[in-house]
Design a protein around this nucleic acid. Structure first.
Lengths: 182, 182
DNA sequence: CATTTAAACGGAGGGGTCCTCCGGAAGACA
DNA sequence: TGTCTTCCGGAGGACCCCTCCGTTTAAATG
């Protein structure tokens, strides 16, 4: 990779982080390129698609969630472990407005950059869920995808009502209680 | 209202219904005008904002949900009544892709066309919830807005995964069970 | 009918965005 | 220093949003 290419890649990623944090996942890519002091063509060469850019932006986060899941597999209470993991997902997903949507869409498109990139995270969640089910704490009919959708759903609602943290907590609580085996 | 104005209003509304059904709530308004055989200026005169158009499109649906709630107030089981109402909301919201989002956003903007227009529906839902809570079937900490957000959340997930009706049902079930008083 | 008038129409136009494509710039390596 | 290959930049075509205003036309009036 040539020196200028590497430099531009870094600048683009940094500015993309800022712009997407401000404007959400469908921010203007031309503005990202402008702020990075780079031509729009350069942006498209490094990130052929909006999703590719998003994926680069999220890779670390996915890895963090994967290793967090591994840590939690050693926790005492399987249910609390799952809940803690989901809470972190739901909180983190709010970082970029529109991200929850994008994630839910990606979850059903196995060829998408995002789907592939979050594989480790998915596996971690699956393990946490299986453990909690085996312990009889989570209803047995819950599928692995379900918990991710639930987290995405809560995150979506939270995005729409950014001010109301109490609402977010209540919604999260309902969903978690709905998961619990009776 | 002049005859041509009334005619154009009707055409615009009809085509808007079709286009939004196809493309979702952020469909091209220029295409709506084109299909209606009307200038773009005419569209903006009748519907100054995208939300105004959406509101006109949804008014009947809101009224239907309001009167459905009234009917259900006479049903035997308060919990089942609430669930039936929510199920109908969640199903209906999927008619237009992006609608659940728009509704959740509108719910916190009391000045928005959508917020005002769905007042009757909100009141109906509030009554159903209060009855179910008084009967001790729904946890007491649930606020009136919460149930609408929950319906919107499920609808959002369903929009993202249009094919999987079973997923939709599962998610709906979790959320409903989370609402139930233990 | 003919005329007038005010409501309604239409679409050009300025400002954005997306994405492609290719001539030109500039690293890298000899 | 010169060559070669990679990389850059931004013009350009297509689309969309929304406003503004000259023109058309329904409808009321004489």
């Amino acid at each position: 990779m040539r020196a200028d290419a590497r430099r531009n890649y870094g600048r683009l990623l940094a500015e993309a982080g800022a712009v997407v944090a401000e404007q959400g996942t469908d921010a203007s890519l031309e503005e990202v390129a402008r702020r990075a002091g780079v031509g729009i063509g350069t942006l498209y060469r490094h990130f052929p698609t909006r999703e590719a850019l998003l994926e680069a932006l999220l890779r670390d986060r996915f890895d963090g969630l994967a290793s967090y899941a591994e840590d939690l597999l050693g926790a005492d209470d399987p249910f609390d472990a799952l809940v803690a993991w989901l809470r972190r997902i739901a909180k983190g997903t709010v970082a970029y407005r529109g991200l929850a949507q994008a994630m839910m869409a990606a979850l059903q498109d196995e060829a998408s950059d995002l789907y592939v990139s979050c594989h480790g995270m998915r596996a971690g969640g699956q393990a946490l869920l299986a453990r909690a089910q085996k312990a009889g704490e989570v209803r047995p009919d819950v599928r692995p995808e379900d918990v991710l959708y639930l987290a995405g759903m809560v995150a979506t609602a939270t995005e729409q009502v950014p001010g109301d943290a109490a609402l977010h907590d209540r919604l999260f609580t309902y969903v978690i209680d709905g998961l619990r085996a009776r």
